[in-house]
Amino acid sequence: MKWWQDRSGAISVLADAGFWVSSMYGVAFQMRIHTDVSNTPATFVIDRNGVVRWAHIGEGERNWSDRPKEDETLAKVKEFAK
């Protein structure tokens, strides 16, 4: 968490109220949050060429908690930064 907190302001929070981007990325309407249907949590690493290099999409009954650790995401960023 500290890594994210140190960079607060560098991280933008965008609203996808029309489910457009979550639909294109294949994560919309796949999780029950309380009693509503929402996107499943997901992380995509996109390289400088605009190509998706790694993705982790929450699956299963506990998909709300199926998220990569920050270290894992950072390692993928470093791997594909080369």
């Binding site: 949590p41 997901a42 995509f44 996109i46």
Partner: peptide, 13 residues
């Protein structure tokens, strides 16, 4: 961001 930097796209809820 293309040709400039990488992007980590996180879908939260």
């Amino acid at each position: 961001f293309k040709d400039k930097q990488m992007v980590v796209l996180v879908f939260n809820y």
